[in-house]
Simulated assay, not measured.
Amino acid sequence: MEANPDEPHGAAVVADGFGLKGPRGWVFREVGLRAEPGSLVAIEGPSGSGRTCLLLALTGRMKAHEGHAEVAGLRLPRRMAAVRRISALGPVPGVSDLDPALTVDEHLRERALLQRRYDGSVRALVRHPAERAAATRARIDEALAAAGLDRDALPKSGRTSVRDLERLEALRLSVALALIGRPRVLALDDTDLKLSDADRAEAWALLRSVADAGTTVLAVCSEAPEGALRITTTAGDGASADADGEPTGTGAEDPDETDDTDDTDDADAQATDEPQDAAEAGTSAQAADEDRPGTDGGASDARSGGDTPAAQATDETDSTDDAEDTEDTENTIEEGESDAFAETGRA
């Protein structure tokens, strides 16, 4: 798909109160962001703090449950499919991994063929084979140049297997594969993982050059570089921050939810302490229940092992909560699986 020169190539990314909840609670919440087209956005924080999920949610690969975000004016989570069409993933473990058995050239040809098959115009599909081949080579060369990957400098040139690439070379290859589709947003995970200081500086210089060329870059890292628009996540609360590091949301758990959890624990403890044998309670407790107004049925049900109305209501509530959690989990898993197939093109 040819880029329209009359439109800005990059995409503005805006988030307000953005949050995603998983089966064990909030992964991140209250995220605020304002990024202009062509910005370099660093999502920093420790491992397990929701960085990758935030990256996937902002690119339409995971469905958020709170607040909203917009990418190039496309509102999330309503326009997730449209956002996926204008964004591309670089290296994201478990989603867009490189195949270690394939060579560099094989990866590039596969991505170019998939791009032409699914994103090409009808006019491009009916071109003469020689013209299509020339256009494909030009697009690959353009992506390699933007990613700073020189195939001739590799041990076996384009026939070098991915397993033989250095970490920085593999990162450049992943970026080149993503740029073949000329996306408006480029997203990367673990940008600075296992990189030396010199390689880390080269990686950030690469991403800055991509952003300067007009593509908005979202990069997960352990430490944001100087000059990047920074979002900071914290393990356990999913707090966020703006470019100056000032928090835009506490990300703390809802007090009402915490109180409900405590009440549930107290109820469980109370149920454990109650005598399991009704006969051990004595006849005095039975007499007291009979004298108390409106407790005949409840006491009888409790001693006979039946569920009281309150217990039945609790069971129904638990069943509803379990169903909602299951639905949320399935939505998240389905989005992740479908996007993994979409990125690799292999079932």
Score class of each variant (00 low, 15 high):
A252C: 01
D256T: 07
T264G: 13
E280S: 09
R292N: 00
D273G: 00
E226N: 14
T248C: 13
G282C: 06
T264C: 03
D263H: 12
G298I: 01
A302Y: 02
A302T: 00
E246D: 12
A267D: 15
Q276E: 13
V220G: 04
T250I: 04
P247N: 13
A279P: 06
T264R: 09
D256M: 08
T272D: 15
T232W: 02
P255L: 09
E223G: 12
V220N: 05
E257V: 14
G305N: 06
A228I: 15
A302Q: 05
C221S: 13
A269V: 00
E257Q: 15
V220E: 09
A252F: 08
D268A: 10
A239I: 00
S222N: 04
T272A: 15
P247Y: 11
E223D: 15
A285Q: 11
D301V: 05
R303G: 01
E226V: 14
R230K: 13
G298L: 09
A269H: 14
D263E: 14
G294I: 02
S284W: 10
S240L: 04
A285F: 07
G282V: 01
E223S: 12
P255Q: 08
T272Q: 14
E274M: 08
A243P: 06
T264W: 06
G306S: 02
T261L: 06
D265V: 02
D254R: 10
T264F: 05
E290Q: 05
V220Q: 05
D291C: 02
T261N: 10
D254C: 12
D262M: 13
T261V: 10
P275Y: 05
D265H: 13
A278R: 09
A269R: 06
T283K: 10
T261R: 10
T261K: 11
D268P: 03
A235Q: 13
G238E: 00
G294V: 04
T250F: 02
